[in-house]
Amino acid sequence: MGGVLVRPIILTVCIYLFLKFIVPNLPHSAPLPSSLIFLYLMLTTAGIVIFATLSGASKDAFFGPILRFLTGEGGGALSGARYLVLALFPLLVGWQTYGSTASSDAPPGENRTIHPAPPGEYTGLSNPVPKTLENINYGKGLYASRCSPCHGNFDGKGFAAAGFTPPPANFKDPTTIAMLQESYLFWRIKKGGVGLPVEGMPWKTAMPRWEMEMSDEDIWKVIMGEYDGAGQKPRTWDESE
């Protein structure tokens, strides 16, 4: 087979290996769905074909070896490889067909929204409690007794966290309270998991409805203690202006 085909094949294989095994291990990354990997490989293949067919000469140089390989004109050592490809292609098609028609053992996917929009009355509320050391420490005390069993040392790893799915929030993670306003936390603490809209899957969360046990003032103090303990600052609109 012509050397002109070797590099595209190696390139495609390398891109597949990179997407499949390297990307999931990058910081803040996750395994890519196979459909996305397939899409990237199709784009790669399309790019290779476009590049190879920019001129008549390059087109012949690219497709010539393929045609000679498929028709067996090359003969010799490549005939074994030809039969192998002709045998593997139907098997691959059969395998893909089986995979798409056989029932999956995987449970249904869950597209849970972690921070759904709060009800209108909780948007833009400001914390009415003065930000004093006394209030912050009082809030930390409430946090220790009420919140830390699940949320732990602000890291979501409390002793009671193991059995719950979704897991308790990690407040030290920059994607939790650091990107939320205090009013959002007030809603989530006051109304608990059962206060979430449908996209938040309220039927799964163990977050208590703290309005049953804490005053609004104490909830605001807990919020202050939470931000201070986690080393985070609430998101405000003023800072961005």
């Binding site: 292609f89 139907p90 098609v93 059969g94 395998w95 067909t97 089986y98 028609t101």
Partner: peptide, 20 residues
């Protein structure tokens, strides 16, 4: 699914024969 897979294999073989 096994039947569908066999059918797909047969179609692919037929496609290959016509193509070549």
């Amino acid at each position: 699914p096994y039947m569908y897979a066999l059918l797909a294999v047969a179609l692919a073989v037929g496609f290959e024969m016509v193509l070549v």
